[in-house]
């Protein structure tokens, strides 16, 4: 049972609070790098871009690494790769918290992926409120507000942050830093509500999820897929940046003459080998098959976990062909009428 508790973190104590987090683990926060944001290790608050839109790679990179060394080959036997260090993910948006919860369903399901589990247990998630940009459509998927999946969640106030505590660890952090927090006032709550309302009204994009799964299933032969097959580059960028895409490929590499490593890396369902089986049969032989497959996978509604999409907008922002997730689904729906 999660006890929701609200405290206030005044602006003047913010830096002190931030620095105190170092004792819980290595702080990783969104940092501006050229024209993108990326979760990176930070030493001081001034490196952090708190008003970021979205990082290129979602926080899943801390739990399933882009290139993840699973096993080391020593004298013909696999040794498990070394343990994990505690990390504090500072400034995670609500959509990404939801994304991690979707990954949890996969990686923590039996048999548990021990690498993922260890890293998850060794992490502290500190969420932060945000304002949507032109790509965001999380509100229509219900992932714009996180009820669980974080330790602390910071909501912007004019003079600090309203902090929601989301876990026992979160309580422990507040407990250990009692001095920096204050009780919240009625006024803070009022601002919090106003902020959320303003935010809710700022979304420019929304996904019509009414009967989405059935609608898509009926649209298997839709001409819209054919249209996008020509536009799509099949480059897999959308998969790489997606917080819920989890396909991985495994390769064994030699590190020296007799020792090797088994590495997994993010894979994309746009790759030819994704649906290929021994003997040369390909279950998704064309780009159309693969394009459609991705939309089917993202729009699958799992009664216990919801859609496989959190509306973060990364696939739109990082698609070289400027294919827009919501627009494709709207067009498919339109063509069905």
């Amino acid at each position: 049972m999660i006890i929701l508790r609200y405290v206030k973190l005044p602006s003047e104590n913010f830096e002190e609070f931030f620095n105190s987090l170092k004792q819980w683990g290595e702080i990783n926060a969104p940092v501006k790098q050229g024209n993108i944001y990326s979760f990176k290790k930070v030493d001081s608050l001034k490196e952090v871009s708190l008003d970021y839109t979205r990082t290129m790679l979602p926080p899943k990179k801390f739990f399933v690494k882009p290139r993840d060394e699973l096993l080391k080959l020593k004298e013909g036997k696999w040794e498990e790769s070394n343990g994990t260090k505690p990390v504090v993910l500072f400034g995670v948006h609500s959509c990404d918290i939801h994304g991690l919860q979707i990954l949890d369903k996969v990686y923590l399901d039996e048999p548990v992926d021990i690498y993922y589990k260890k890293r998850r247990e060794n992490s502290i998630i500190i969420g932060i409120s945000c304002m949507p940009d032109e790509y965001c459509f999380c509100k229509s998927l219900g992932t714009d507000f996180a009820m669980t999946g974080f330790d602390l969640f910071l909501h912007e106030l004019p003079d600090g942050y309203l902090v929601r505590v989301g876990s026992v660890k979160g309580h422990e952090i507040v407990w250990a830093n009692e001095g920096v927090f204050e009780p919240i006032s009625e006024e803070d709550l009022k601002y919090f509500r106003e902020f959320e309302e303003k935010r809710a009204n700022s979304f420019k994009r929304s996904l019509n999820k009414e009967g989405l799964a059935d609608m898509l299933d009926l649209a298997f032969e839709s001409p819209v897929w054919k249209k996008y097959e020509k536009i799509c580059l099949g480059c897999g960028n959308c998969n790489m940046v997606c917080p819920t895409c989890r396909c991985y490929e495994v390769c064994d590499l030699w590190v020296n003459a007799y020792e090797g490593v088994r590495v997994r890396r993010y894979d994309s369902c746009f790759m030819e080998s994704h649906g290929l089986v021994a003997g040369g049969h390909n279950f998704r032989p064309t780009r159309l098959d693969r394009f459609r497959h991705r939309y089917y996978c993202k729009s699958y509604f799992d009664p216990s976990a919801g859609f496989n999409c959190v509306g973060c907008g990364r696939c739109d922002e990082f698609c070289p062909a400027k294919i827009e997730h919501v627009k494709v689904l709207d067009e498919v729906r339109e063509a069905l009428k």
Partner: peptide
């Protein structure tokens, strides 16, 4: 069997095509 984009994203390089 994969394009350059895959490794580019694995390394989290800024996409020069889209961003620049």
């Amino acid at each position: 069997d994969y394009p350059v984009c895959i490794e580019c994203k694995l390394n989290e390089y800024e996409c020069v095509l889209i961003k620049r």
